[in-house]
Design a protein around this nucleic acid. Sequence first.
RNA 1: GUGGGAUUAGCUCAGUUGGAUAGAGUGCCAGAUUGUGGCUCUGGAAGUCGUGGGUUCGAGUCCCAUAUCCCACCCCA
Length: 420
Amino acid sequence: MNFAAPKGTRDILPPETAAWQYAEQCFADICARFGYKEIRIPTFEQTELFQRGVGDTTDVVQKEMYTFLDKGKRSMTLRPEGTAGVVRSYLENGMASWPSPVRLYYNLTAFRYENVQKGRYREFHQFGCEAIGAAGPAVDAELISLLQLYFQTLGLKETSLRINSIGCPVCRGTYLKILRDYLQPHLADLCANCRERFEKNPMRIIDCKESRCQEITQEAPSQLEYLCPDCRTHFDGLRGQLESLGLAYAVDPRIVRGLDYYTRTVFEFVSGFVGAQGTICGGGRYDGLIEDIGGPATPGIGFALGVERLLMELAAQNIELPGTQPMSLYLAVSGDHQDEAGVLCWKLRQAGIAVETDLMNRSLKAQMKYAGKSGARYALVLGDDEAASGAGRLRDLQNGEEKPVRLSELAAELTQTTTR
RNA sequence: GUGGGAUUAGCUCAGUUGGAUAGAGUGCCAGAUUGUGGCUCUGGAAGUCGUGGGUUCGAGUCCCAUAUCCCACCCCA
C-alpha cells in the first residue's frame, strides 16, 4: 500500500456511515422542530476572517490553521470552525433584514493542524447552530434545550451540562485586573505555561490541571462574582429558564472557552468516556463578533458539536444507532437467465423494492451464501422453471419458509410483507 | 512544539538467546455427485515483516533515522 489517509484524517466506511446518516438526520429533524434552517458555507475563507473572528491570540489561529496562498496570491484558510463563516455569510447576504432572530444550523467538516489523540482529528465534523439577533437569555436556553432534546432522542443516558458566564468586555476587564492582582504574589509558584498565560489570558490559569496551580487558584476570585449588573441579570435569567425547563446543569466557573469571540454565556456538554477530550459540545454567546468582522453590533449565540466525539460517547454508553437497511430480496440466478434477472430487478427497483442479483456468474450455492451474509430478507431463484412458468418460490431467509409467488406480483408481495 | 507505547496477510495477533521456503484465527474465493444460505469439512489466493540506512556469515528479531497509528501535555469539537 503506497498511500494512506493523511495524518489526523480517516475514512468512514459502511456500516459506520449508516450511523452517521442517522445522527445527521436526527439532528436536522430536531433543528427543524426549533425553527433552525440549514446553511452550507465554503470550506475555506479568507484567512483574515478567522484572524478577526476567532481571534489572533488564540491557539487555533496562531498555530493550528491550514493556511495557503491561492494562485492569485490570496491567503486562504480551511475553516477551523463554523461560526466565523456563518457570521460572514449573515453579513454578506443581508440576513439582518430577515425575520429576526435568524436561526441557522450546519453540518460541516473543520480543519485544525494539531497533534492527534483520542477524539481529536485534523479533519473533524461539527454539527452546530447559530441564533443571531436576540440578546436575552431565552435564546441561550432554547439552544441548550435543543441540544438536550437531540441527545435525548439519540438515547444518550447521561449528559452533563455545565454553564458559566465570562462577562462582557466591560466587566471582564475589571475582573481580569482583580485576577491579576490576586495571582501576582503567586506568580513564581505557577507552572511555566501559566506564567505565560498571566499576561496573555489569565483566565486560562483557572483551567490549569497542574495541582500547584489548582491550589493557588482554589481561592481565586471568580468572574461570576464580578459580573456587571447586565451580565448578572442575563446569567440569572438563563438559570431561571433552565430550571423552569427542568434541565439539569452545573455552574462551572472553570469553563473558559478558548475562542476570543465568546461573551457572557458559555456552556459545555461533557462526557467521561471520550478520554481527555471530554467536551462533546461547546458553545456560547458572541455579542461582539459581528461588529468585530465589520457589521453592526448584533448579539448572537451558537454551539458546535463534535460528531466524532458524540459517536464515541454513544458507543461508550452502548447505544447502537440504526444501521443500513438490508436488501428485501436477493434474486439468485440459475442457468442462463442473467438477462431476465436484470429486467426483473429493474422493474422491482422502479417499484421501490431493494433488490440485488448476481453479477459474477456464481454458482447457485455461492449466491445463496452471499444472500445469507448480505442480510437480505428474502431470496428467490430465477431458473429454467421460473422463466418458463412465470412463477417461483419466495424464500424467507430468516426462517427458511418458502411460498409460491407469481413473478409479476413479486413487487406487490414484497411491499406487503416488508412493511407489515 | 514535548513525552510514552506500538507498526508482521483485508482484520485481530503469534513468531524463542539473531538461523534455512514467515505462521494462526477470522474474513475472502472455490469445492464437498448435477436447483437453495447459516453448521461442518477440504482446498486456494493473499505479507517488500511501515520505510530508509547500519551491525552481522546471516536481521521480522539488534542499533540509528524517519513516517504512521494509539495515548498524554497544550488547546479545542
